[in-house]
Amino acid sequence: MEAPPDNDVLWARSLHFTHPDGSPGLAGVSIAVREGEILAVSGPRGSGKTTLLRCLSGLEPVREGEVWFNSTPLHTLGPAHRERLRRDRFCWIGPEPGLVPELNAWENAALPLMLRGTSRRRAKTTALEWLERLDIGEAARKRPHRLRQSERQRVSIARALAPAPTVLFADEPTAPLHRADRGHVLRTLTSAARSHGITVVLATHDPETAALADRTVNLLDGRPVRTVHLPEIPDAEGRAACSISV
């Protein structure tokens, strides 16, 4: 078992995954994420993007294949070790903000830092700085239900960036937003990640979003492919319009 090369921070080799109900998830994915880059994992819905991110971040146990993080074999670690790794090195942004409803914005953003044992004062300073940077400084004392969706999503991004993770996993971070908000959120995310040298693995089905990344890996049916263009549907002329009883 050899360790991956030095400039790859995260590395998967022939990763297979089957969901507990038996439906296929990933079928032999091998990717390498370099340090400080923004890697887009693109593909239509159901192509295994989220599953790949969950496997890479240690949320799902890997049974077939290997996942390495900085020469740590994730596929051999137990759940407790993976949890600590997730807390200390990774951060996650989902399609839903997933904020704790009873904490206000800065407390939400400071929560990962506090969970790592940072003092409250330093956690608060860092969280407020990040909220300022993401342009929601004046909402820092509001609770999530009084924020709009895009603001909540930015709080979620601040929460992910505040502890300065090594790798940031963003799973369709702009899915529930309109296009204007989407662009804003994505630009802040990518620029913050670039200026702080944070590696980002970004799952998206949107080619515009993928264009902001350094590199794109296309997935289709759990496999990395060069192109996701499917063969054209043959001309429908001459067929009955609404026939489902073939």
């Binding site: 807390r87 997933g98 929560l111 990962p112």
Partner: peptide, 15 residues
């Protein structure tokens, strides 16, 4: 849901 979000953050179950 909140618990799920916290666990995804890596909050230890002991907390």
């Amino acid at each position: 849901e909140t618990t799920d979000a916290l666990l995804r953050l890596g909050a230890p179950a002991t907390v």
